[in-house]
Nucleic acid binder design. Structure first.
Lengths: 196, 196
DNA sequence: ATAAAAAAATACTAATTAGTATGAAAAAGC
DNA sequence: GCTTTTTCATACTAATTAGTATTTTTTTAT
């Protein structure tokens, strides 16, 4: 990777971490260039504005991560019910990057940036639609294979699962411990089993 | 009401509206005093800091509203299943103050202010705990009356309902229309019926 | 009515913000 | 080599921020 591409990625990664832990609005460019050891000239060479950098984070950091960790595994799934549960459980309890007190990066950005920044909204909506579509697809396959009841509506379930995930992430932030996650996961399992 | 108490409440109400639509961090005190037509001297006479005002909004605006609209009706409920659905449906589709694109005020504040401001976290947690406890109570009553299965765990269901609500609010913000609400509500109904 | 206290008005500060102007160094093309 | 383009560094600006100091007005108590 070229040196220039490296500084750009470095900015995106460090900025993303700061934004994930502190929020977008309260993360200043001065802070970003301080932690990246990159000068302001370099920053504004790579990004015209702070918002352009924000959108780049979504497209170049969040999107690939999501593709790799959520989309691919879900597409490869043979057992949707069990794998949905495992996916959510992994995200809540085991993912080494995500932390209870900081919530879900995508959820945080959605909450903070919509509806005031259309570029953010569009980039985030694209992400979420992708995830949703994958879940719906997985449900339809599950129905074919007789693993899921025929009267289950994929879109409804997808919304339900993702909403629950985003919401419980907010509870986690509020209480700063994973006890709410554990209670939530039990009910999620029960709900998912009801789809069989 | 005394004139002083009136300016205080006026500040709280207007500030709350601004914060609900714009977010806490991006709502400046200058903006608040401009829309309230109150001077900075008056503002800082009533509130030592911006954060103190924020907490006052939670305790003096959000909490009473919640008591009146969610807690009381839920306590009076004879049919938990149906009333849970009606409560969420009302909040999502009919409440005249809440707007799709601005999400849930409590959810927004939780997302934006935790874990960085403990006073906010505590005040918000108190709110949410109250709501949660009321739901749990209602479920237990429902179990007594034979309206809800005995093996249903109240706390799990409460977390599940509230998480779903917070989460779908985020979807609403993202898409800025209530189509996701409608899909979500169908699955909520189906889920709640599964508790019978 | 008047003194005391509460409430509000005005003018300011120091820090931080995103963004710019300009020039220097590094890399690439020939 | 030398030129051109890319990449980065430095020093700045203008606006906005939360909060303060000080004075004036209004209300309350006696």
């Amino acid at each position: 990777m070229s040196k220039a591409a490296n500084t750009r990625l470095n900015i995106l990664h460090k900025a993303f971490e700061l934004i994930y832990t502190k929020g977008y609005q309260t993360t200043s460019i001065d802070e970003i260039i301080a932690t990246t050891q990159v000068t302001k000239g370099a920053f504004y060479y790579h990004f015209k504005t702070k918002d352009e950098m924000g959108v780049a984070i979504i497209e170049e950091i969040l999107k690939p991560t999501m593709q790799e960790h959520f989309i691919k595994p879900t597409e490869a799934s043979q057992n949707p019910i069990e794998d949905f549960y495992n996916m959510i459980s992994y995200l809540l309890l085991d993912d080494p990057f995500l932390q209870v007190k900081y919530g879900c990066p995508v959820g945080n950005l959605t909450q903070e940036m919509t509806p005031w920044n259309n570029k953010f909204s569009e980039a985030l909506a694209e992400l979420v639609d992708l995830w949703k579509a994958t879940i719906i697809n997985s449900i339809e396959k599950g129905k074919e294979y007789g693993l899921i009841r025929k009267d289950v509506v994929g879109e409804q379930v997808a919304f339900f699962i993702l909403s629950g995930y985003w919401g419980i992430r907010n509870f986690g932030k509020l209480q700063n411990d994973n006890s709410s996650y554990l209670v939530y996961l039990k009910e999620l399992k029960s709900y998912l089993n009801g789809l069989k």
